[in-house]
Simulated scan of single mutants.
Amino acid sequence: MRFVLNVIWLVLCGFWMAIGYVVAGVICCILIITIPFGIASFRIANYALWPFGRTAIRKPTAGAGSTIGNVIWVVVAGIWLAIGHVVTGVAMCLTIIGIPLGIASFKMVPISLLPLGREIVPSDELVYRSAATPMA
């Protein structure tokens, strides 16, 4: 089922959202000081192409640098990419078959706003990570 949803996603909106992230990444890489933003943007472009079966989690090692970088990212490109995901999600939810795609687009809004300090992992790996973490 993930494969079918990913193919539908790719055809209807994934390709266009990934282009938005690639454009933001290229602009960030042209400006030398914002290369970390460009790398994060390319990573999210890959996620935007094939989102089902993967999820974004917070890195436990993320510190104050990623927080400061995320504030800059929101102002420069994050808000526009998040608006793109919201508009795409609303358009997808207009049809019954598009509702899972719209929900996936809404789930990508947080990572489009705050990409630094996040890691994209397979959903299956998330289950293993949480099971391996001891309870306090």
Rank of each mutant, 00 (worst) to 15 (best):
T95A: 08
I19L: 14
I99W: 03
A56D: 00
R43T: 11
A62K: 09
V76A: 05
V87K: 03
V26N: 02
L5Q: 11
I96E: 03
A18K: 10
A64P: 11
V75C: 12
I111F: 00
W16M: 13
Y47P: 08
V26I: 14
G63E: 08
R43L: 13
A91V: 15
G53P: 03
A62C: 07
L12Q: 08
I57K: 06
P51Y: 01
N46Q: 15
L113E: 02
G14D: 03
I44S: 06
M17P: 00
R129E: 04
V75R: 09
F15N: 13
I103Q: 11
G117C: 02
V22G: 01
S66K: 14
A62E: 06
V127A: 05
N70M: 06
I35K: 14
P36S: 11
K59S: 09
A132M: 10
T61S: 15
V76F: 11
G63P: 10
G117I: 02
L94H: 08
R2K: 15
L94Q: 07
I68M: 13
E119D: 10
W73M: 06
G78S: 06
T67A: 14
V86F: 10
L49C: 13
L5V: 00
V23H: 06
E119H: 09
M17R: 13
R118H: 09
I96Y: 06
Y128A: 15
F37C: 15
N46W: 12
V87A: 07
T133A: 12
A82S: 13
I99G: 07
A91C: 12
D124R: 14
Y21G: 04
I19S: 10
T133K: 15
Y21I: 04
I72G: 00
T88I: 09
A131H: 10
L126D: 03
A104V: 02
I68C: 14
T61K: 14
T88W: 02
I30M: 11
G89Y: 01
F3I: 14
V7E: 00
S112M: 05
F3C: 12
I99E: 06
K107H: 11
N46S: 15
V11I: 15
G63K: 10
I8E: 07
F37W: 15
H85V: 03
L81Q: 07
I111L: 00
I79P: 00
F52H: 07
I103S: 13
F106R: 10
D124Q: 10
N46P: 03
I120W: 04
I27N: 03
A62Y: 04
W9P: 05
M108W: 02
A18C: 07
V90G: 09
G38K: 13
W73H: 08
W16S: 15
P51R: 05
G89E: 01
V23I: 12
W16F: 14
F37N: 14
G98F: 03
P115R: 01
L5K: 11
L10R: 15
